[in-house]
Design a protein around this nucleic acid. Structure first.
Lengths: 334, 334
DNA sequence: CTGAAAGCGCTTACAG
DNA sequence: CTGAAAGCGCTTACAG
């Protein structure tokens, strides 16, 4: 496939490259009628399509952005990506998707590559492990938006769920329904991961608001693979919980699996609320009360913020945290 | 952020651009020890990072591929993308992800844009609606791989599930278990969509192999939103099915939702098998018998085929259909 | 062992 | 209204 270039078109039409370029960029203002037609015809006949790479080199814009997610297999990431894609499609931008796998090394590698590829900006679910890099980007005024997690030391527009509220919605409902011991299950908290930390805080604050003492015994913080086993221990205890708040969908799966194995009845033996909507919530038995994240709105907002930054580089936006409202979907699991 | 270029590095190090370029490409063969150190130091001090766009223009390779999926929200697409991403990451390639939404117009737009952006190749879940374009690409020897669907008129490497076998596995199991009336539910078949057509064929062939007459009455072909209603009609009939094969996960959801609403007991009132594994199959009540697609292997294969095509353009591979084995996961819903 | 020069395919002042 | 020329930031024969 011999590629046809602008020079070919120019020759074929008997005009200069400049004129073809004007045509391609729809600057017809000063172009003769016949000239335009000739160029149009030449493009048609040669099947010319411009090399955007070459244009990018000159214009310093690739109309492409990078999106680095923690894991594209998570439903939440998928929905955020989809929303970003839709928004970018409108604006004629493309997205390069990368999986950082929660690994700061991989994250850095991707960031560097994306910049080397001259993407116009980056949306990232930050691992938090590349402080110096984030700060460098901010200093360079490189367009960037954080999603799902924040990095307190770094001044970047950030799109987050109101995580405390999400946990509070769950606790409030459980308290209203009269549950006494409200447990919480989360993956490990050893590292600062915004959603987990904030949801934990929300859980504790909400308990306090209801004058319930936080009981560390009712908290499980373990790797996904160990949750069922710990749950088993927890439920043997005399002061076992009668309700549990699952910090995310992965945790909810473990609880449901456990309940199934042990023949526990939900909500009678154990009430359950999960943060994150799940596909089967509406037809599980019982139907599952969940707290949904507005993932599409969040993705859209992230894209909007980034494209704004890209388009008017001059304006010095103040950076902000954008909080989105979780939505309580009351069903029958509590 | 004033970008530092190769020329800056050259000046700073007191060498020529050529030398810096050699250094960047690790061609140290003929480079003096001191020269190398000087360049290294200059790069360090200036914080130089090369502009890959510029390199791409010269080298005619962007180390980027395009991936056009039908819908990134589908679990299958997600898994395929993830596998492609992983494979590409190894090879230092990046992926641009696009959603065609099953719309040939959008598909064409994306294809054109991706080529204009000089991606080195494209993996696509083809809508089937751009025959001329596909054929043009083949003629141009443009690296391309189809996934999930085939386009019979076009000679392109294609990665598919053995769809007939998937349906056959389901029917065989149901027959073995003694079910008499085995129904099938699918989205509309008006257009040729490989998985649907092949699974339908597989279903009919499998029935025949068991000397069961195919009864069109037991088949529902309807938009997702109308399935429950049609199912209701179907199950009122005298010769209603006692088992159903769901052609994909979306259909399975509808069946489960229906069963829940009507208080049907699975498998006693109605046995169910779904093609596509679902997250909750293992802890639903009953646990769900499904037929899983090896999505990761399929994605990996697609990436492998594409990168091979990209790397040795000379070699004329014969194009092939690569079939992957579905996996029957026996559980309790039949 | 290193540098000058041409070129990748565009865009953009500037001149006429 | 249109064209010649310079330049975007690299790479790559080629010369010495």
């Amino acid at each position: 496939m011999k590629t046809v270039t602008m020079a070919d078109v120019a020759k074929h039409a008997g005009v200069s490259k400049s004129t073809v370029s004007q045509y391609m960029n729809q600057r017809y203002d000063y172009m003769g009628e016949k000239t335009r037609e000739r160029v149009e015809k030449a493009i048609e006949e040669l099947g010319y399509s411009p090399n955007i790479i070459a244009r990018s080199l000159k214009q310093k814009s690739t109309t492409t952005i990078g999106v680095i997610v923690a894991n594209i297999l998570h439903v939440f990431s998928t929905q955020v990506i989809r929303a970003i894609e839709d928004f970018c499609h409108e604006a004629n931008f493309h997205i390069i998707v990368c999986n950082a796998d929660d690994d700061p090394v991989k994250e850095k590698k991707y960031m560097d590559m994306l910049r080397a590829k001259q993407v116009d900006g980056i949306i990232v679910f930050p691992t938090g492990g590349n402080l110096a890099l984030y700060q460098q980007l901010v200093r360079d005024k490189y367009p960037i938006v954080f999603v799902d997690r924040m990095v307190p030391e770094v001044e970047v527009n950030t799109v987050l769920l109101d995580n405390e509220k999400a946990a509070k919605l769950g606790v409030d409902l459980l308290v209203t329904k009269g549950y006494q011991g409200i447990g919480m299950i989360t993956p490990p908290l050893h590292r600062y991961v915004t959603p987990r930390m904030e949801r934990m805080n929300g859980y504790q604050k909400a308990l306090k608001a209801h004058d319930i003492k936080f009981d560390p015994q009712l908290l499980i913080s373990a790797e996904i693979g160990h949750i069922r086993q710990q749950l088993d221990v927890l439920l043997q205890q005399p002061n076992k919980p009668d309700a549990i708040l699952a910090i995310n969908d992965r945790v909810l799966f473990e609880i449901l699996q456990y309940a199934k194995e042990k023949g526990l009845s939900i909500p009678d033996d154990l009430a359950v609320i999960g943060i994150d909507e799940v596909t089967f919530a509406g037809f599980y038995s019982p139907t599952l009360t969940t707290i949904a994240q507005p993932a599409f709105e969040m993705g859209k907002k992230a894209a909007e913020l980034l494209l704004n930054q890209i388009q008017d580089k001059t304006e010095v936006d103040e950076t902000k945290i954008y909080r989105f409202e979780p939505q309580l979907l009351k069903r029958d699991s509590c």
